[in-house]
Design a protein around this nucleic acid. Structure first.
Length: 928
RNA sequence: GGGCGCGUAGCUCAGUGGGAGAGCACUACGUUGACAUCGUAGGGGUCGCUGGUUCAAUCCCAGCCGCGCCCACCA
């Protein structure tokens, strides 16, 4: 059946993919050779918050490329797929959806009913994601799909939590955390994003208690007094005026002479009337602001630390939504005398924090306690999901002792058990782990793994994997059965992600896949989640996975860090900016292969990868090119020949394409081994389009269209073989069109392409130097003739004679061998020897020969003169450079011999060319 | 405040201590039986600036200019 005129990507992709899947081509170990090495990639699980974006398409293309390549090599391959529950993000999506649908809120609905809705959403979204992966051609083992909240993975989470608790690496602590007032939950440092704002700094006066005064003296750098006055107040500065309601002290540096006399005294907190101490602490910087700092230990990380050192009270003034909460807080009015001001302050109860700020400022100003205001650019923390200002908030939370776990994670990258590609990302990784803070893992959310902790009546903690075990443990503790209450919080979504490389492989219940595939081979991900995910997988993997000797095992050999996909203008794609390119829209328009090739060929770029559809179009055309090459092969009966031996061909063109094929195979493998995906794509593009189609197929035409015989048979077989090799090597990048052609081109394939063996031949074993030289020479000759024809405006269809003026033996042989090809591809009517170039002929300087085209009747003398002068100028410039270099004794003495010899050769060749060009120029001059 | 990265053709970007590259865009010509989603030929770059190392620098080093990102508790 003849090949269709065009490749119908939409139809073929679905059909081919369905067939692969039905035949179990993606299963773990499919196509593995006996005793093969294992090769495993765990997919970075997409969030079940919606659909895949271009970044997913990019990363999964690369993973699929590696997976298909290794599978064809016969390795025991597993690409493990799955999705992530993405706690806060998914809860947010479902809550928003409920609101849009006019439903009752999460709280009204209750935990159980709400979770049911989230699960419904998950089923839908998770299914969509897997379908999208299929559309891209991702050859993961879908039968092993996992979800972070699956039973097995949840079991792993519980086991890890309990063990870390028992190891003392998870603990509960009351401390300041980053609190998201929108979601009303704690979040980790990583989920906070600092934004620059043009803010203000307000300077307040806090009066000293008991009418005390002091001499306030300021000095300049030379110690000269610049100000001296008696003060009954101390000035403090703040960017957050409303927090003054929670102040419990004023701190000054112990060496700050200005304030030495008031250390130990008290000030009266304005508005509230609370009596708070002036303390000396290393924290305040005398150079900054007034040198005195108001302390709000319950709402500022620095103040919290000072407060702990100085035993300051911690007064919380906000509720969980960051509204002022003063009235019901016993400690807010503790020891504070009743006053009109206090009543006014208490009336602020329930105000949103920024409204509260306005009111506090107004009150301070009205009382003359606002000293001055200055502009102060600074950064403010925002929740990365909610986009609201984060509030440092004093709560009980669960923390992971990250510092302890970080040590092995650092060591095993330092010793290259795990390597980053590119290597420089290791620096980023080290820096973060070396300065790591405790990881707050509890979240006041509903969607996620509920913390396996139960509390007894007296608050005693029972950390067990199940309620039953907790009850048993409690009974043992109390000597009788008691009612336990489970911790309502869930874990940070990254907690379960951190287990992904081993939880998906069956740990802790089934270790078959774990034994086979752990440590995994490659993790491919973006640099934006090195901290969130990669570092934490390293920490947990090393803590929980051990080899038979009990030595820790890293989760992966290589971490490949890819760039982030942006739009044409370099902007990060986001829904709010409206610049999101949906990968499936591209797939619909150009086919998955074109998108995949585009993404692959852009993989080497630094941190940004700017996607333009013009490139996708170009690579779609590349697919068409191969398609047409296959049609040509079929039309000329170039069918694969069983037992074909590429080393046994006789025709020069065939020897040449065999060598070219071997060279590209080496390039592609070397590129993929080094994760230089774009190099692999570029090598294939250049080979298939620039070598196989542009030259080899053209060279083969005279043979294929000539008389039957051994040469024709050989060329048919070689053309088919070389095309097959192109399909094989291109398959990991463009799986669909290659598979389609593979099956269409021959009816008796041993295997579909996806399970066809990857070649291992080498140029050293297959290339023929003489054939290469012959063909290179011929290509140059054809190009030279074509160039002249175009510049002299010879009609494209016109056949012109060619005269060989002088030629050495090698050139003569090459000319004889390439006679038919030269005639055909350069449109030459005749090739004859001549003693000298006729008047008005154009001469071509080639290695070992001077060819000339007698174009006297068509020639534009001025144009030819210009052409020769230009060429001559170029050559002479090069000669000048080379002569200068070769005259330099230092160069001759110090440069490697090979380099010197090479330069000499180049000089000789250039001089020969210049001579020929000069002679030609002289002849033209005679005419003019 | 620390750290990282980038500046090469009109655009997007590869690349290398010794002859400047690709894709797209552009120009001219072309219905040669695979392909106009194409073919042939061509134009276009002081490889950010300055200095240093070297026989030799677009490449290595230093400084500068411009741009981007990450980390960081400065009130």
């Amino acid at each position: 059946m003849p090949i269709e005129k065009n490749f119908n990507a939409a139809e073929a992709e679905q059909r081919i993919f369905a067939k692969w899947e039905a035949e179990d081509r993606f299963k773990a170990g499919a196509n593995a050779k006996p005793g093969a090495d294992s090769y495993c990639i765990v997919i970075p699980p997409p969030n079940v918050t919606g659909s895949l974006h271009m970044g997913h398409a990019f990363n999964n293309t690369l993973q699929d490329l590696l997976t298909r390549w290794r599978r064809m090599q016969g390795q025991d391959v597993l690409w493990q797929p799955g999705t992530d529950h993405a706690g806060i993000a998914t809860q947010m999506v479902v809550e928003r959806k409920l609101a849009e649908e006019g439903n009752i809120s999460r709280r009204e609905m209750g935990r159980e009913a709400f979770l049911k809705r989230v699960w419904e959403w998950k089923e839908e979204s998770g299914g969509t994601i897997m379908e999208q992966l299929r559309r891209l051609g991702a050859s993961c083992d879908y039968s092993r799909e996992r979800f972070t909240m699956d039973e097995g993975l949840s079991h792993a989470v519980l086991k890890v939590f309990v063990q870390l608790y028992n190891d003392g690496l998870i603990y509960r602590d009351k401390r300041l955390v980053n609190w998201d007032p929108h979601f009303e939950t704690a979040i980790s440092d990583l989920e906070v994003e600092q934004r620059d704002v043009q803010g203000k700094m307000w300077h307040f006066r806090y009066p000293l208690a008991d009418g005390a005064t002091y001499e306030y003296v300021e000095k300049d750098a030379d110690g000269n007094e610049t100000l001296r006055e008696t003060r009954d107040y101390v000035t403090v500065a703040t960017t957050r005026p409303e927090t003054m309601l929670g102040d419990t002290g004023v701190a000054v540096h112990p060496d700050d002479e200005r304030y030495k006399s008031i250390v130990g005294k008290d000030v009266i907190l304005p508005l509230v009337g609370r009596r708070i101490p002036v303390v000396a602490d290393e924290y305040p910087d005398p150079e900054q602001g007034s040198g005195a700092v108001k302390m709000t230990p319950a709402h500022d990380f620095n103040d919290f630390a000072v407060g702990k050192r100085q035993n300051l009270r911690m007064i919380n003034i906000f509720d969980t939504t960051a509204h002022l909460k003063l009235k019901d807080e016993a400690d807010f009015v503790e020891d504070v005398p009743a006053s009109a001001d206090l009543d006014e302050v208490l009336a602020l109860d329930g105000l949103e924090r920024f409204e509260g700020r306005k009111q506090v400022l107004a009150m301070m100003e009205a009382r003359g306690l606002l000293d001055h205001i200055e502009d102060n650019p600074h950064t403010i923390p925002y929740g990365d999901r909610s986009g609201v200002v984060i509030e440092p908030y004093l709560t009980d939370q669960w923390f992971v002792d990250a510092e302890t776990l970080a040590k092995p994670a650092l060591a095993h990258v330092r010793n290259d058990d795990t390597s980053f590609v590119p290597k420089n990302w290791e620096k980023t990784y080290f820096h973060w782990l070396e300065n790591i803070e405790p990881w707050c893992v509890s979240r006041q959310l509903w969607w996620g793994h509920q913390i396996p902790v139960w509390y007894g009546p007296d608050g005693e903690v029972f950390c067990e994997a199940t309620a039953g075990e907790a009850a048993a443990s409690a009974e043992k503790h109390y000597g009788k059965p008691v009612d336990l209450e489970r911790d309502p919080d869930v874990l940070d979504t990254w907690f379960s992600s951190a287990l992904w490389p081993f939880s998906t492989l069956g740990w802790p219940d089934d270790d078959a896949a774990l034994k086979r595939y752990y440590p995994t081979s490659v993790l491919s991900t973006g640099f934006d989640i090195i901290f969130f995910w990669v570092a934490r997988m390293m920490m947990f993997g090393l803590h929980f996975m051990k080899d038979q000797e009990g030595e820790p095992l890293v989760p992966f050999d290589t971490v490949y860090i890819h760039a982030l996909v942006r739009d044409e203008n370099g902007q990060k794609m986001s829904k709010s900016k409206g610049n999101v390119i949906d990968p499936l829209e591209i797939v619909d328009e150009y086919g998955a292969d074109a998108l995949r090739f585009t993404l692959t060929s852009m993989a080497a770029m630094g941190r940004d990868l700017k996607l333009a559809t013009s490139r996708v179009e170009g690579y779609r055309n590349f697919g068409t090119k191969i398609w047409n090459a296959a049609r040509f092969a079929e039309m000329n009966e170039c069918a694969p020949v069983a037992g074909f031996d590429p080393n046994a061909v006789n025709e020069t063109v065939n020897k040449w394409i065999v060598g070219e094929t071997a060279r590209v195979r080496e390039s592609v493998d070397a590129a993929l081994e080094a994760f230089r995906f774009n190099d692999a794509a570029a090598a294939l593009y250049a080979h298939i389009w620039g070598v196989y189609c542009d030259w080899y197929l053209e060279f083969s035409k005279p043979l294929l269209q000539g008389d039957d015989g051994p040469a024709k048979d050989e060329t048919r077989a070689t053309a088919a073989w070389a095309l097959d090799q192109c399909l094989i090597m291109l398959h990991p990048i463009m799986p669909f069109i290659t598979e389609e052609l593979w099956l269409v081109l021959s009816e008796d394939r041993a295997q579909p392409l996806i399970h066809t063996d990857w070649p291992a031949y080498t140029a050293a074993g297959m290339a023929d130097a003489e054939a290469d030289a012959q063909m290179d020479w011929l290509v140059k000759a054809i190009e030279a003739v074509r160039s002249v024809r175009a510049e002299m405006n010879v009609p494209p269809g016109a056949k012109i004679p060619l005269l060989v003026v002088e030629a050495d033996e090698t050139a003569k042989a090459r000319l004889a061998g390439g006679d038919a090809l030269l005639r055909r591809l350069a449109r030459i009517a005749s090739i004859d020897a001549a003693a000298e170039a006729p008047k008005g002929a154009v001469t071509l300087a080639l290695e070992g020969a001077t060819l000339c085209l007698p174009l006297a009747d068509v020639i534009d003398i001025a144009a030819e003169k210009a052409r020769l002068e230009k060429a001559l100028g170029k050559v002479q410039k090069e000669i000048g450079g080379l002569e200068k270099k070769l005259a330099n004794e230092n160069f001759l003495a110090k440069a490697p011999e090979a380099v010197v010899a090479e330069q000499r050769e180049r000089l000789t060749a250039s001089q020969a060319e210049a001579e020929k060009l000069s002679a030609a120029a002289a002849r033209i001059a005679e005419l003019g």
